[in-house]
Measured scan of single mutants.
Amino acid sequence: MQIFVKTLTGKTITLEVEPSDTIENVKAKIQDKEGIPPDQQRLIFAGKQLEDGRTLSDYNIQKDSTLHLVLR
């Protein structure tokens, strides 16, 4: 499925993911596309910070959802 990741600069990254993918996995995909190390990434969805060990389906993230990427 496709999800979107919006950065603070207003750029939107499109990712191909599975509901069973972990947040860690998603961060690795963002690193592949953007070169941002996962340890600098914070992903936010519906006002919640997403934890590495959980999956997209744990957070009820569905296709065409938009996550927000904050760098630390």
Rank of each mutant, 00 (worst) to 15 (best):
Q40F: 05
H68W: 02
I44T: 08
P38G: 11
G53P: 10
L69S: 02
Q2R: 06
I3Q: 00
V70L: 04
V70T: 07
K48S: 08
V5Q: 00
E16F: 11
N25Y: 14
P19M: 05
A46F: 08
L71D: 14
G47W: 07
D39S: 05
T9M: 15
S57D: 06
K6P: 01
I44D: 10
Q31M: 04
S20K: 05
F45P: 00
Q2N: 04
A46T: 06
F4T: 05
L8Q: 04
L71A: 09
E18I: 12
D52H: 14
E34D: 11
P37S: 13
P38T: 14
L56H: 00
I30N: 01
Q49R: 08
I30G: 01
D52E: 06
T7I: 04
P19T: 08
E16D: 14
Q2T: 11
Q41A: 11
D32M: 08
T55W: 05
E24N: 04
L15Q: 01
Q62F: 15
N60P: 08
P19I: 08
I30V: 04
T7Y: 13
L71I: 11
G10T: 09
I36N: 11
I61D: 00
V70P: 01
N60S: 14
E18Q: 10
E16L: 15
K48E: 11
T14Q: 12
D58F: 03
Q49K: 07
Q41I: 10
D64V: 02
Q31T: 13
G47E: 06
I23E: 01
T12V: 15
N60H: 11
L56S: 01
K29M: 12
K11H: 12
V26T: 09
R72Y: 11
L8M: 13
K33T: 11
K6T: 14
K48T: 07
V70D: 06
K33E: 12
N25T: 13
T14L: 05
K33I: 11
L15I: 07
I30H: 00
F4W: 08
T14V: 15
T55F: 10
Q62V: 12
I44V: 12
D21F: 13
Y59T: 02
R42E: 09
D52S: 08
Q41K: 02
F45N: 08
G10K: 03
T66L: 03
R54G: 08
G47S: 06
V70G: 08
L69H: 01
I23M: 06
D21I: 10
D52G: 04
L8A: 12
D64E: 14
K48F: 09
R54M: 11
L69G: 01
I36E: 02
K27N: 02
S57W: 08
I3V: 08
E24S: 09
N25G: 13
L50M: 09
L71P: 09
K29Y: 11
L56Q: 00
Q62W: 10
Q62K: 13
T9W: 03
F45Q: 04
E16T: 10
K27H: 02
Q40V: 10
I61Y: 01
E24A: 03
Q31S: 14
K27S: 02
D32A: 13
K63T: 12
S65D: 13
F45V: 09
R42P: 01
L50Q: 01
L56I: 14
G10M: 11
G47V: 03
S20Q: 15
L43H: 01
T9A: 09
E16H: 12
Q41W: 05
G47F: 10
T22D: 07
D64K: 03
V26G: 00
G53L: 08
A46H: 15
K6R: 07
I23H: 02
T12M: 10
L67R: 01
P38I: 13
A46E: 15
I13F: 15
E18A: 15
T7P: 11
T66N: 07
K33R: 07
R42V: 08
Q41D: 01
E24R: 15
M1E: 07
E18N: 12
S65I: 11
D64W: 04
D52K: 04
E16M: 10
V5L: 12
K11Q: 03
V26Q: 00
E18K: 08
L69W: 02
K63I: 11
Q49S: 06
M1A: 03
E34S: 08
T14W: 12
K29I: 03
H68P: 01
Q2P: 04
Q40L: 02
L15R: 00
I61G: 00
I61Q: 00
P37M: 15
E34K: 02
G10A: 15
T7D: 09
T12R: 08
Y59G: 01
R72W: 08
N60G: 10
D52M: 15
L50A: 02
G10P: 07
I61N: 00
K33G: 11
P19E: 11
H68Q: 04
T22W: 12
S65F: 12
Q41N: 06
Q41P: 01
H68F: 07
I3N: 00
D21L: 05
Y59E: 07
G10Y: 04
E16Y: 15
G35N: 03
L15E: 01
K29E: 11
I61R: 00
N60A: 11
K29H: 07
D39W: 06
L8W: 06
G10L: 05
I36Y: 13
R54F: 14
V26D: 00
G47I: 02
I23G: 02
P19N: 06
L67T: 01
T7E: 13
G35W: 05
K63P: 11
D32G: 14
A28L: 14
V26F: 02
V70M: 09
N25P: 02
Q2S: 15
I44L: 08
T9S: 14
L43Q: 00
V5G: 01
Q49E: 05
G53R: 04
Q31H: 11
T14K: 14
E51G: 04
M1L: 08
G53T: 11
K11P: 11
T22Q: 08
L50I: 09
M1P: 02
D58W: 09
T55V: 14
K11V: 11
R42K: 13
K11M: 10
Q40M: 12
Q62Y: 13
K6F: 14
D39E: 09
E24D: 12
T7G: 10
T7V: 10
T14I: 07
L8T: 11
R42T: 15
R72V: 15
V5I: 10
G10R: 04
P37N: 15
V70I: 06
Q62N: 14
P19V: 04
T66S: 06
L15T: 02
E34Y: 06
S20P: 15
I36T: 13
I13V: 13
T9I: 13
E16G: 04
D58T: 07
R54W: 02
Q40I: 05
E16P: 08
E16W: 11
L56T: 03
Q41G: 06
T9K: 13
D21V: 04
S20R: 02
L67I: 06
D32F: 04
S65Q: 10
K27Q: 03
T66Q: 13
T14F: 13
V5N: 00
K27R: 09
D21P: 00
T66V: 10
F45M: 09
I44R: 07
G47D: 09
I13P: 00
T14M: 10
E51K: 05
G53Y: 07
I13L: 03
V17G: 02
D64M: 04
T9N: 14
D32K: 11
V26K: 00
Q2I: 12
T66I: 04
I3M: 08
R54D: 07
T7F: 08
D32Y: 06
G53W: 06
V70H: 05
K29N: 14
I23F: 02
G35P: 03
I30Q: 00
E51D: 08
N60W: 09
D52V: 06
S20V: 10
E51S: 09
E51R: 06
L43W: 01
K6Y: 10
T55H: 12
I23A: 10
Q2A: 09
V5K: 00
L50T: 04
Q31P: 02
R54H: 15
I30D: 00
R72F: 09
E16S: 09
N25R: 09
S57M: 14
L43F: 09
S20G: 14
L69Q: 02
M1K: 02
S57K: 07
E24K: 13
G47K: 03
D32H: 07
I36R: 02
Y59V: 03
Q62I: 14
I36D: 03
E51I: 03
L15S: 01
T7W: 15
P19Y: 10
H68E: 04
T55L: 10
K11S: 05
E16K: 13
E24F: 14
P38D: 13
V5F: 04
T22V: 14
Q62M: 08
M1I: 05
Q40H: 07
K27A: 02
S65H: 08
I44W: 14
I44M: 06
L56P: 01
D58Q: 11
E34P: 02
D58P: 01
K11T: 07
G35D: 10
Y59A: 03
K6E: 07
E51P: 02
I23Y: 02
Q41R: 02
E18R: 13
K11A: 14
I3E: 00
Q41H: 04
T14D: 06
R72M: 10
F45Y: 14
K27Y: 04
D64Q: 03
I3H: 00
R72L: 11
K48H: 11
F4N: 13
A28M: 10
I23V: 09
K11Y: 14
N25A: 09
F45T: 03
D39G: 06
G10D: 04
S65L: 03
Q62D: 05
T14N: 05
P19G: 04
T22H: 09
P37T: 14
F45S: 05
Q2M: 15
G53Q: 13
D52Q: 10
V17N: 02
D58V: 07
Q62S: 05
A28H: 13
V70S: 07
